[in-house]
Design a protein around this nucleic acid. Structure first.
Lengths: 122, 122
DNA sequence: CTCGAACATTGACGGTGATCGATATAAGGA
DNA sequence: TCCTTATATCGATCACCGTCAATGTTCGAG
């Protein structure tokens, strides 16, 4: 490793020409684009209601929950819960499957771990 | 483990009376207070400029950088950079040490890993 | 003690996000 | 077909956030 950058953030770096390994780009640890992408993923997570939703889906039977289950426990209106669910689905943390009138939400395996791995140093 | 909640989110749970382990609280995977705290930590991270700051501090010589170094590379005004630095310091990701006229910022060891560990499932 | 440099703070502006009520859609049952 | 239930979408409101220009503060140099 040619600097002391955390390994995980290193993985966000595009493959670069070795001849450019010592230029002023060395202090450019992460690209602006990658920073924007990671920030988007974290922003989807950075809300108390959405963290509780993820946690409640995981804790629910069969790791799956419908909107009515969540609305009850969250103390939020149904449109608000649907709003948060859409954000989590768009960000890739949850999947939605409709059965009859109900919509069931499930954790995407490895999605949380993927973001976590980007933050771990060493 | 009495449910399939991700281990890490489990650690956020306060020690609770076993007699209450099977009530309706079972579906309450994470407390509102803990969700708020974790959301605050994530919100401090969920910004492209702040992610780049953290990355640049880590990549910098001696894992330490002053404001002028960052302002240069970020393309942001000096007040804006100071603003972001304050948020990162308040959230516990960076420490500030003033030497002469300069202010040097350093990563807090384990801070990022602590948040990452809370997100990892299993 | 004054001057300039590095950084922090303040105030203001524009944009975004969380929430709700109202409404739309879709599916099942009478 | 009509009605009810579950969910999604829309529009509006209010608070918060990122950014900057201007100003304040704290050093070291002379």
């Amino acid at each position: 490793m040619w600097n002391n950058l955390p390994m995980s953030l290193m993985e966000l770096l595009p493959v670069r020409d070795v001849t450019a390994c010592c230029g002023p780009l060395t202090r450019e640890a992460i690209t602006d684009e990658n920073a924007t992408n990671l920030a988007s993923s974290l922003k989807a997570l950075a809300d108390p209601a959405r963290l509780r939703i993820i946690s409640m889906v995981a804790a629910h039977e069969d790791a799956e929950a419908c909107v009515c289950d969540l609305t009850e426990s969250l103390g939020l209106g149904q449109p608000t819960v649907s709003h948060h669910l859409k954000i989590l689905v768009d960000a890739g943390y949850l999947t939605r499957s409709k059965r009859g009138t109900w919509a069931y939400y499930t954790l995407v395996p490895g999605a949380l771990d993927g973001v976590a791995r980007l933050l771990v140093t060493v």
